[in-house]
Amino acid sequence: MSEAADLPLWAALLVSALVLVGAGLTLIGSYGLLRLERFYDRIHAPTLGSSWGTGGILVASMLLFSVLQTRPVLHEILIALFVTVTTPVTLMLLARAALYRDRTEGNADVPPMLSKDVPPTQNP
């Protein structure tokens, strides 16, 4: 961290706060993933890390590099955009896969299919 010596104090404090908040939210989300008891509850926990956990660390990184290089360094926006677009896809696919598996096994406490025309057990 040799080049960080000429960083102004306000930037250092702001970057530190954002990094700590982001990492803390990610840790809480992962802890929830470990501690919660049912799969459908667990699927909510990682969203903490992928929404403001990622957001905090990305904004901190953008701020740090922009101040250090005295020009706007904004390529972290790409990661933010990518994570925002892909997280819903993965979580939705996982939730649907889990629901499908629970229905084919006939587990209790899962809702029936929305379109009642095809019973779930007759799916290929």
């Binding site: 961290m1 250092a12 970057v15 530190s16």
Partner: peptide, 19 residues
Amino acid sequence: SATILNWSITIAQIMLGMA
């Protein structure tokens, strides 16, 4: 400011490692 940044990034890395 380098000290502040160094410490907070270290703590954040420990938290991420625990996560």
